[in-house]
Structure formats: structure tokens, C-alpha cells
């Protein structure tokens, strides 16, 4: 599903590498937490997987595509198989919940009939029934993140990337979002989630990859945050 080997990335003008010889294999159906301090390289790694960025060195394969050599015109089609959510939700403020989710289907050329069927069902899945005509500023943070999640999965992606999706939410709401991610994972979607949230990582007992200064310092299955930190 994802195969990253000795990937390094140095941004222009930066004194040290954002990623330093990172290697990681992620299998289909995995639920992986990327943890580490700010600036440890979590977001850079996610950006590489989405092909927002290209490594300076190393090789990266995602969903069978070689992201070093993929031609620019094929990148949009590659991304249609990946969903992504962010800490800041990134919803369009002038569109309703329904329109926000529908927009991402419309712009990849899905038919109105498909949109009319897929959007309500995904909104039901994330628990936003009856709120489809609200605007983002009328929703709580948790609800906004559900909209973002609905948008990310409405096209049934094989891979879901989440960059600190609970960073702006209180612990209870965070847990709801993670429960939702768990259900999405159970349906067969591979999930890679970057997070600071110790509580969630500890409760979930999933695979935890710890990054520090752009390097992977531990990679364990079924551990909590502390254990993973200690393991290094």
C-alpha cells in the first residue's frame, strides 16, 4: 500500500533535514499513528504520501504509484484514491454541509445522480443527518471535522491521511472522531494519522511510529504513546 525507503527531504533555506532517511512499510488495512513533537516530520511525511511534495532522496510508492516519477498530469487521478483531513478542517465557508461534500465529487466529474446518492449516505455515516443545509460557521468543531471526514471518504478512498484531526477538539469530541476513524478502518480503508494526542494513542493500542528530528525512532504494534517513546 505504502512503501517508503530512505526518504530524505531538505527544504530550501532550512538548516537541517525535515525528513532524514525515513523507511516505512504500511500494509492495506493498517491503522498507523505518526507521533512526535512539532517539527519532527509528521506533516512532511503525510505531504509526501499525497504527493504534495517530492523527496530530495529515496523512493516512495503509494497505491502502486512511484511518486518520484509520476507525471504531473497523473497526480490528480492518483489523489482521487486518497482522502485527507486536517486540523483546521478546510471547509468552504460559503457552501453548506451538503455542498461542501458534493463539491469534491462535482470537481472530479461525478454525475449529479451519483452526488445526490453518495452525499446523504456519507453524511449519515458520519452522523450529520439533518444538518446538511447548515453552513460551517453554524457547526461545532467536532461537527466541522465530521464534514471534512465525510468529504474525505465520500469517494471511497483506499487510503485516508489525517494530519492532527483532533488538534482543535476537546477530548470527548476527539474520541468521537477517532471512533469514526476506527469504523472507517474496519471497512477496509488504510489510515495514517499524525497526532499529538497521547490519550487517543494509548487507548487505541495500534501501530505507533515515533518521529524525532525527521527520523523514525520507533515503530511498534499494539503499544501506547509512553511505551513507544520509551522503546527508543
Amino acid at each position: 500500500m505504502i512503501s517508503i525507503e530512505k526518504v530524505s527531504k531538505t527544504y530550501k533555506g532550512a538548516s537541517r533535514a525535515a525528513l532524514d532517511s525515513v523507511s516505512i512499510e504500511i500494509e492495506k488495512g493498517d491503522f498507523v499513528f505518526l507521533v512526535g513533537a512539532s517539527g519532527s516530520g509528521k506533516s512532511s511525511l503525510l505531504r509526501m504520501m499525497l504527493r504534495e511534495d517530492v523527496p530530495s532522496k529515496g523512493s516512495i510508492f503509494v497505491l502502486g504509484e512511484n511518486l518520484i516519477s509520476i507525471p504531473a498530469r497523473k497526480v490528480p487521478y492518483f489523489r482521487r484514491n486518497i482522502g485527507m483531513v486536517f486540523q483546521d478542517f478546510r471547509l468552504l465557508p460559503n457552501k453548506t454541509v451538503f455542498q461542501n461534500v458534493a463539491f469534491c465529487l462535482e470537481v472530479i466529474g461525478k454525475s449529479p445522480a451519483f452526488v445526490a446518492e453518495a452525499v446523504p449516505s456519507v453524511l449519515k455515516l458520519v452522523g450529520l443527518e439533518g444538518k446538511q443545509d447548515r453552513y460551517p460557521n453554524e457547526l461545532s468543531g467536532g461537527e466541522q471535522q465530521r464534514v471534512a471526514l465525510a468529504r474525505a471518504i465520500v469517494n471511497k478512498p483506499q487510503l485516508l491521511l489525517a494530519d492532527e484531526p483532533t488538534g482543535n477538539l476537546d477530548p470527548a469530541t476527539s474520541q468521537e472522531i477517532v471512533n469514526l476513524l476506527e469504523r472507517i478502518s474496519a471497512a477496509g480503508t488504510t489510515i495514517v494519522m499524525a497526532t499529538h494526542d497521547r490519550g487517543i494513542v494509548d487507548r487505541m493500542q495500534r501501530r505507533v511510529v515515533v518521529l524525532k528530528d525527521g527520523q523514525i525512532v520507533s515503530d511498534d504494534r499494539g503499544v501506547g504513546y509512553e511505551k513507544a517513546e520509551e522503546a527508543r
Partner: peptide, 17 residues
């Protein structure tokens, strides 16, 4: 820019954008 950002994220083709 917000719309463009979302379109690129979800894989709208460059031509369409």
C-alpha cells in the same frame, strides 16, 4: 484559493481547475 486548494486535494484535474 480555498476552492483551488480543495480541488487539488480531492484530485480535480488541472484542466478543470
Amino acid at each position: 484559493r480555498r476552492e483551488i486548494g480543495i480541488m487539488r486535494l480531492v484530485g480535480a484535474s488541472n484542466f478543470y481547475i
